[in-house]
Simulated assay, not measured.
Amino acid sequence: MNALSRNCLLACAAFVLFAPAAQAEPEPAALVDQHRCMFCHTRDAAFLAPSFEQIAARYRDVPNAQFMLEHKLRLGGKAHWGDMAMPLPADRGGPISAEDAHTLVHWVLSQ
């Protein structure tokens, strides 16, 4: 291995070792407030519903989870976690657009 290849390999290894870990997306605070997410969820501890971190850990690598969670967010749904179902949109601040549901679910899965 020549010096250039060795230096490139060392630089790449240093980047992998010292690069910052992936960060969660910034919270879409206005949407979280508008749809009353924090009435039942917290970021890191179960409350009336699972935490956002628990949801992310459970669904992050599940195929079609983004779509399923967006659908549940937009329409409400049966309990998948304990006894509490996702309330109907009318009980959470009103209807939620497909775009806003996508934004919220993407943020939750980034936790």
Rank of each mutant, 00 (worst) to 15 (best):
M1A: 10
M1W: 08
N2T: 14
A3H: 01
S5E: 08
R6P: 00
R6L: 09
N7Q: 13
N7P: 01
N7F: 13
C8D: 02
C8N: 04
L9S: 04
L9D: 02
L9I: 02
L9A: 08
L10P: 00
A11Q: 09
C12T: 09
C12S: 13
C12V: 13
A13S: 08
A14M: 04
A14N: 00
A14L: 07
V16E: 00
V16A: 08
L17S: 10
L17P: 04
L17E: 06
F18W: 13
F18I: 08
F18C: 13
P20T: 14
P20N: 14
A21W: 11
A22F: 15
A22T: 15
Q23E: 15
E25R: 13
P26Q: 05
P26M: 03
P26G: 04
E27M: 06
P28H: 11
P28T: 11
P28D: 08
A29M: 05
A29D: 05
A29F: 03
L31P: 00
L31G: 00
D33E: 14
Q34S: 03
Q34A: 12
Q34L: 03
Q34W: 00
H35K: 12
H35F: 13
H35T: 05
R36L: 09
R36V: 02
C37M: 03
C37H: 03
M38E: 12
M38R: 15
F39W: 09
F39V: 14
H41W: 06
H41C: 05
T42R: 15
T42P: 07
R43E: 01
D44G: 14
A45L: 07
A45G: 01
A45M: 08
A46N: 08
F47S: 11
F47H: 08
L48S: 11
P50H: 07
S51P: 09
F52R: 00
F52N: 00
I55E: 02
A57F: 09
R58W: 07
Y59Q: 09
R60D: 08
R60S: 13
R60G: 05
D61W: 10
V62S: 10
V62E: 15
P63Q: 12
P63Y: 12
P63H: 10
P63T: 10
N64I: 07
L69W: 03
L69R: 06
E70A: 02
H71R: 13
K72M: 03
K72W: 01
L73E: 07
L73M: 15
L73F: 12
R74Y: 03
R74F: 04
G76L: 01
G76I: 01
G76P: 00
G77S: 01
G77I: 01
A79S: 08
H80F: 11
W81Y: 12
W81T: 06
A85I: 00
M86E: 04
P87R: 05
P87I: 04
A90T: 06
A90E: 11
A90I: 09
D91R: 09
R92M: 15
G94C: 12
G94P: 11
P95H: 09
P95E: 15
I96V: 15
I96C: 03
I96A: 04
S97H: 02
D100A: 13
D100I: 06
H102G: 09
H102N: 12
H102K: 13
T103R: 14
T103S: 09
V105H: 05
V105G: 06
H106W: 06
H106T: 15
H106M: 10
W107L: 07
W107T: 06
V108G: 05
L109K: 11
Q111T: 06
